[in-house]
Amino acid sequence: MTIASTDRPAPAAPAASHEARRRRRGQFSRAEQRAGTAFAIPAIVLLLVFVIGPAVVALAMSFTNARLISPVAPEFVGLDNFRRAFLDDAVFHRSILNTFLFAGLVVPLQGGLGLVLALLVNQKLAGRNFFRTVYFLPVITSMVVISLLWRFLYQEEGLVNSALSMITGGFYAGQAWLANPSTAMFAIVVMSVWQGVGFHMVIWLAGLQTIPDVVYEAGALDGCTPWQRFRHITLPLLKPTSVFVLITITIAAMSLFVQVDVMTGGGPLNSTSSIVFQIVQKGFEQQQIGYGAALSLIFFCMVFALALIQRRLTRDKD
């Protein structure tokens, strides 16, 4: 995932004799081993204690019937939690489907719209900083706050419906978006894209700005149309950025939680329940931390596999 060619000129390499360089390398290696470890150690320790540690405890808990609070000691129950998750828990199955549906919609929408916005604000226009700021505003607003706001907007008498009815000249009557099982998930998708697209606009913008102008000038000489220029020059050069965008949106989308928790509580009729929502619901609200931990483990394996597949696919095309 790279745009390796920055236009920063490499500083002139110091002229040093071969001999001196080799000697220095020899000295480096032991000092380098020490220094490298020393540089990395604070992060490694913190990572072990605060990320790997809890994950290992969760892993251990997933094979027990541990409760959040209970006077009875937890017992080892083998694969019972996993059996329950895979065979009995219909709501969890639905949540897996919902999560993939959400990710399947959000990844292309947010990625694509982000690129469109980036292209728009990459033009040399008066006021482009204003537009960049406005598009980025939802990103810096807390998801809890945004979910509270949109719950209002999506009501039957809410602003979304007023706006739609205005646009269609009163033709569209409106509905309670979050109360209908067939629209609730799409309502959450629209809101999530609205919230996150500014972030990916900036990432695309970063990619666009690493494309040197000379490339476009060459294209202009060949008489490219704007579309051809986009299709054959811009897009291929954005490839590394697109891999980055793809993977970060996928991971974020798979972790869908706050919007569901604040706006729908997983309803109506399980239509918005997500995997992480189920993990928190079972593991925390219903106090079944053993089962919640098992769901976390399944979730981790799924996202990990997905990330590996994406990496493989995008790498093959390189």
């Binding site: 540690g53 290992v56 405890v57 251990a60 808990m61 094979f63 027990t64 541990a66 937890p74």
Partner: peptide, 8 residues
């Protein structure tokens, strides 16, 4: 007890 028993 749980954590100790299971490798934490």
């Amino acid at each position: 007890k749980l954590a100790a028993a299971t490798g934490g």
